[in-house]
Write a protein that binds this DNA or RNA. Structure first.
Lengths: 219, 219
DNA sequence: CCATTACGCTACGGGTCGTAGCGAAAGCAT
DNA sequence: ATGCTTTCGCTACGACCCGTAGCGTAATGG
């Protein structure tokens, strides 16, 4: 009964090799030229395909670069280093190394900029990149909770909100450090970041304990 | 003895009104067209100047948009709300409101993307935007220290490092939340963010106190 | 063998870029 | 006033990239 879009359609199938070649060529062009000087004609030439072939698969530059960059993020892993602090430091250093690569730097920020005016592109980024990497937060939290380093979540809704918040804080800080402030997220920076994320700014403050919690209005 | 570049040079002076009109037209074009569809010819027409006039003052689209966006950030203020938590929440909400404006959204991220391949543009962003807004962190910290909410800094070098770190954490989280995750940084989110920033993730954890500090390797 | 789809290639109108050249306008110095 | 200098508006230009149309060919399934 699968009348529309059968699993194997008639006619010549699309070349999977062409897809891979185009995405690799896109990353290479991002390295050499950056976003603004990257042209689809040049990418097609690098990939050894016709420009029309490229336009048959992607609507434009934005969609192509999102797919080319998204593949990079799947390399991130969260090995068990024995403690929450070490786990965070490890994944943040990985993320910093990823953002040190020019194809990730210029590509990611450019598509984010374009996505501010393109609802469809926003969804594509969310599903292809953002949501895929939230797995790291969920995995790290579950591991820390099983170690007793973090309290269990009061409910599923609150748990999801907190996970999103952590993700924005970690990814946002690294992105801002490396791309906006344009300073390296080296080990010293990562240690300081992890410390504040885990214990807060007010550590060792005379009012940093219960008094500060009251001030925040409780849970 | 100011032989070179005297305070008042000979010839017709540049029109200050034209500068303002061009920057305003740039922001208007960002709102309507976004970064990629914005053309310098269109901006010149909107501003009522010739295209050549625009090229005499700015090297290109990147430099123009940096200047147009930088003006927006000078609106940020840090009123005294009586506590560090309230001060942070106030300025973060301001920043979120700023990033909700389309001219700031698309403009800021686009120039950051371009800056990844342009050293000169990076410096321009740093001096025009980033360094100017670090005043907020310094002011907030000094105020909190005078209230006794934060401990004094051990030394000037460490103090500068911490200020940079805080700035990246605050600005990065808001930018990532609004532009990458594409969710609103509303009051509820800001409260959660401030809580974690001040007291840390491990609050109320059975090992969240001294044990966690030892794990981090001390100060 | 035939229908169907993908592919490579060429060519095209349309738009933007950044610059050159020119005469006119608007300041300063004498 | 009268030069001198610099900016301004305008027009025109070659160069580049865009996105699509058209065509013949290649690869697959029925």
């Amino acid at each position: 009964m699968q009348s529309r879009t059968p699993p194997t359609r008639a006619g010549r199938p699309r070349s999977a090799a062409a897809d891979a070649a185009i995405l690799a060529a896109t990353r290479a062009a991002l390295v050499e030229l950056g976003w603004s000087r990257l042209t689809l004609g040049d990418v097609a030439t690098r990939a050894g395909v016709a420009k029309t072939t490229l336009y048959r698969r992607w609507a434009g530059k934005n969609e192509l670069v999102v797919d080319a960059v998204a593949e990079l993020f799947d390399e991130l892993r969260l090995p068990d280093h024995g403690s929450l602090a070490a786990d965070i430091e490890g994944v943040v250093l990985q993320f910093a190394a990823l953002l040190a690569r020019p194809e990730a730097r210029s590509g990611l920020m450019a598509v984010v900029a374009e996505a501010t005016r393109d609802e469809t592109l926003r969804d594509r980024i969310r599903t292809s990149i953002v949501d895929r990497q939230k797995r790291l937060v969920l995995e790290g939290r579950a591991r820390a909770q099983s170690r007793g380093e973090l309290p269990p979540e009061p409910g599923p809704e609150e748990a999801a909100r907190t996970a999103d918040l952590i993700f924005d804080m970690v990814a946002g800080a690294v992105v801002h450090r490396t791309l906006v402030s344009a300073e390296p997220a080296d080990e010293e920076w990562v240690r300081g970041f992890t410390r504040i994320l885990l214990t807060g700014l007010a550590t060792h403050s005379p009012f940093g304990g219960p008094a500060l919690l009251e001030e925040l209005g409780g849970v």
